[in-house]
Amino acid sequence: MQNKKHNVNKVANREALIGVGLVIFNFVWWYGFAYGLGSKDPEEYKYIVGLPDWFFYSCVIGLIVMIVLVIVVIKVFFVEIPFDDEEGEEK
């Protein structure tokens, strides 16, 4: 019992840290492309499918990258655990 609880906590803590990691990555990607490419004079922007390059990479590709990352992270690192560890107490 104790051992099981320990494991559950470990899983939960690790998954929360993964969440924090994803947010940091997401922020860096979003900020880096938006202000890295977007701080130039608008006359010098390049365009991809009609959108300014900073916006295309930061917001459009950024969204797709995050969706793919989230799927990979869930499939690879997230563990399925039962929630009701004390059976018999439930009505």
């Binding site: 559950v8 906590n9 899983v11 939960a12 803590n13 998954e15 929360a16 993964i18 969440g19 924090v20 994803l22 947010v23 997401n26 979003w30 938006a34 916006f55 930061s58 917001c59 950024g62 969204l63 995050m66 989230v70 655990i81 929630f83 560890d85």
Partner: peptide, 25 residues
């Protein structure tokens, strides 16, 4: 402003990951 709004994408995964299984249990 679209750039600003895209900060909300985080909510899609962050809330459930942070509160997560511990909160559920």
């Amino acid at each position: 402003w679209v750039l600003l709004a895209m900060s909300q994408v985080v909510t899609g995964y962050f809330v459930l990951m942070i509160l997560g299984k511990k909160f559920a249990i």
